[in-house]
């Protein structure tokens, strides 16, 4: 089950903890992977670790022209683009009263608009191929909201709406569009939290532990597989039970 041999997958944010693990998991199932991210060095390291079937495709998602060019570059490098994982995301957290236009725009540009452009660039080839998988990484806070993250939550909720609409348009062409919504996942981002903050977070997670990037990667592998062909427009929450939605 979940064999991805012969499939070509583009993962954005592959230089980060979750993105790298998603790329590893897709690769382990046989996929060719395109590793995208802003910082080239970690992408090269990951490509070296994976060996064959890994391509480095640096891209600054805040640059619209670079984003438009990425799907084409991915197809050139890999030969096709069967699976798109929009994982990259940034935060500009601040209380809403202090939210500046640029904090809002930067987060919307990268987390929502770049994902839209990549979906648009990828879906054409998927329609022709009559097969495609798009997995957008959202967040539990896109559903629940979170103080200090109005911009981030708006972008993530927007991505869910985009995914559901696109899912309906392309469902009859063998293409599924789904979201994976992580809860608290142990990454470089959460390492910065104090022990007190971590204890507060874990008190709200029934499983009693933070999730790992591998928990997210497993959900992505499932949604990218042929076996998940009847699942579309869905959001798979991977959050240890912290929000049962």
């Amino acid at each position: 089950m979940f064999d991805l041999s012969g499939k070509c997958a583009l993962v954005t944010g592959a230089s980060g903890g979750i993105g790298a693990e998603i790329a590893r998991a897709l690769h382990a199932r046989g996929a060719v992977v395109g590793l995208s991210g802003t910082r080239e060095a970690p992408l090269r390291e990951l490509a070296a670790e994976l060996g064959e079937r890994a391509h480095v495709l640096p891209c600054d998602l805040s640059d619209p022209e670079a984003v438009e060019a990425l799907p084409k570059a991915a197809i050139e490098a890999m030969g096709a683009l069967d699976i798109l994982v929009n994982n990259a995301g940034i935060t500009r957290d601040t209380l809403f009263m202090r939210l500046k236009d640029e904090d809002w725009q930067a987060v919307i540009d990268v987390n929502l608009t770049a994902a839209m452009r990549l979906c648009r660039g990828a879906v054409r080839g998927m329609i022709k191929a009559r097969w495609g998988r798009i997995v957008n990484i959202t967040s539990v806070v896109g559903t629940t909201g979170n103080p200090g993250q109005a911009n981030y939550c708006a972008a993530k909720a927007g991505l869910v709406g985009l995914s559901k609409s696109l899912a309906q348009e392309v469902a009859a062409r063998g293409i599924t569009v789904n979201c994976v919504a992580p809860g608290f996942i142990a990454t470089a981002m959460t390492d910065k939290l104090t022990d007190e903050q971590k204890a507060g977070i874990l008190g709200a997670v029934p499983v009693g532990a933070m999730g790992t990037p591998a928990d997210i990667a497993a959900a992505v592998v499932y949604l990218a597989s042929s076996e998940a062909g009847y699942v579309t427009g869905a959001t798979l929450h991977v959050n240890g039970g912290m929000a049962m939605v």
Binding site: R124, I127, K128, E169, V170, A172, R173
Partner: peptide
């Protein structure tokens, strides 16, 4: 044809 078919035909 459905509306997506017409887009595909144009492509």
């Amino acid at each position: 044809a459905d509306s997506l078919d017409t887009v595909e035909l144009v492509m």
